[in-house]
Design a protein around this nucleic acid. Sequence first.
DNA 1: AGCCATTGGTTATTCGTTTAAGCTAAGTTA
DNA 2: TAACTTAGCTTAAACGAATAACCAATGGCT
Lengths: 336, 336
Amino acid sequence: MTSIRPRPATITDIARQAGVSTATVSYVLNDAPAGARIPEATRARVRAVADELGYVPHASARSLRTGSSSMVLHVHLDVVQGQLASEFLYGLTHALRELGYTLMQYGAERNRGVKAARGWAGMRPAAVIAGYDRLTPAGIDLLGKSGIRVVAVGADPAEVKGTGLSTLRMDNRTVGEEAARHLVGRGYRDLAAVIPAEPPLRGMGEERLRGLREAAAAEGATVRTQDMDWSPESAGSVVRAWLAEGLPEGVFGYNDEFSGLLLGALHDAGVRVPEQVGLVGADDIMLCHMLRPKLTTVRLEAQDPGEVARRIVEVVTERAEVHLSPWRPVLVRRGT
Amino acid sequence: MTSIRPRPATITDIARQAGVSTATVSYVLNDAPAGARIPEATRARVRAVADELGYVPHASARSLRTGSSSMVLHVHLDVVQGQLASEFLYGLTHALRELGYTLMQYGAERNRGVKAARGWAGMRPAAVIAGYDRLTPAGIDLLGKSGIRVVAVGADPAEVKGTGLSTLRMDNRTVGEEAARHLVGRGYRDLAAVIPAEPPLRGMGEERLRGLREAAAAEGATVRTQDMDWSPESAGSVVRAWLAEGLPEGVFGYNDEFSGLLLGALHDAGVRVPEQVGLVGADDIMLCHMLRPKLTTVRLEAQDPGEVARRIVEVVTERAEVHLSPWRPVLVRRGT
DNA sequence: AGCCATTGGTTATTCGTTTAAGCTAAGTTA
DNA sequence: TAACTTAGCTTAAACGAATAACCAATGGCT
């Protein structure tokens, strides 16, 4: 026995069963001004039938007709991670919902540039929010042509270009600068930094490193760097290299998680933190409170929580072009 | 100066510019069998115009017409976290894409039950995959009425009911059992466990605890429990309570992150792990490799990677009803 | 009685796409 | 030469919802 696929109820079904026209149903269900002249008795009947049939408006049909979409697409790496990203998403989801938009996420996208952009554009979202490493000028152009606003997150406006593009800059340089100020302030002159080897994080790492370098140079400190993978083994070999060439005085571990791996490897090598080597991470995730000694870190703090969401909403609703860098680095001094 | 909103190109635009009908354009662009009689010259012209105009098909219009959606909705907690979830999502995204489906994620949803279900149903996805704590019988019913398949993740089929519901059981009881076996095997008889206080995690915690309790009781061990918040302070007060009432021999920390917090608090209290207290976490995330001693943990391992994705695809495409529990607990013995 | 206003709706069109069912002109066959 | 094929399209009708424009019936006013 094959069961027939249940068909979702439509306004036509409601209209038939309530003995009115589809127009009436639409007016009632939307509390449309044009339907104000429909008496309460009819309205109640229509609503009752809609309820009984479990009616749910067809979002695609509606947006096709009205020509406007209530969806905002967020494109991310395989999976969203980290506290900053989590807070960002949470705030954004709710701010957008309040304005009648729905934030949908689309992840694990291997395609890039135009090919990916075509996929996004097909859903005709009101806007696309994407990490800047997902975007190419051609892709931005294609979205722009379709009237879809694009917000590049983490981008320096000078780097990513395209018509109608907005940027939300996560200024990673300042993170590195803050870390350098802290380490140099402790009297360290021989600094080392680690930079993630894999592509999606590498760009961020380079930015943080640039800030670190500049601020260190200004104070007369030197910085050596090494690539590192997201694995305990890689952390081990970084530490072995340091032991071979002489321990640095201060280390910037790119972020808290890489720093956690380094801290473990340093411990295994018998290096004492912070007595022999000072360590500073970045992002201030809960991990800092699990490690011993507790991890000192630099956190990007929203200058005004909600600001980001509000500005994105501006981009979406008012078609404004917005470029802002709403985060500020803050050092959280702990045990390392 | 107000710029006019760019209108995405439609097949009508292409038809006009290429001097053919919209039907022809559609046939060409879809490589439809019915369009096989269209000569290459025309096809090339149509395609050229489509390219030039940056045409991207309107997914909503298409799915409205064909009556079938290529979207699968994944509803999750605020943000997806953890390795298991990440692997699951990644595999699923790609398996579905291969079959022409697009996995979209929808998070940070406060609404539950019917209200949430209405929102999901409005997008007319082919299926909804949701944590079982997001679902209520009424919500499942509403989705079923609309012909949308529902997959409850993490649910025991006996617990969650509804027409046409499939379940993907993440059997958290077995995680607790495996932890108990390990701790008892070490000779501990006085066990303690921690359970997250907040709602979304609480359910999982209770399941894990149930398994722990049963397996411990079978071996003649006792289990005391305490609520814990996701904060270092809460971990501290849990440890203080233990000190007051006598240290347990073995602790199950619910998951790796809670265990990490506990490990830090134990360290601060001068309790040595594993000499005085044995500790086992769950999920086997990278954190285990950062802590010292390294964290012993129980991991749910996919019995067959890809199995989950394949079965979900069955649900989506063949309207099968599937109930499986594709994960198996594995103990990873490390330092604690 | 004739006109107007109001009530309570309905009709018809549109959004972008797909697709079954035509239709015309040229070529082929009986 | 008439009938039949075939190539190469086109026409038209959906899908579900929104909405401008219309309309019939009733009541009130002059």
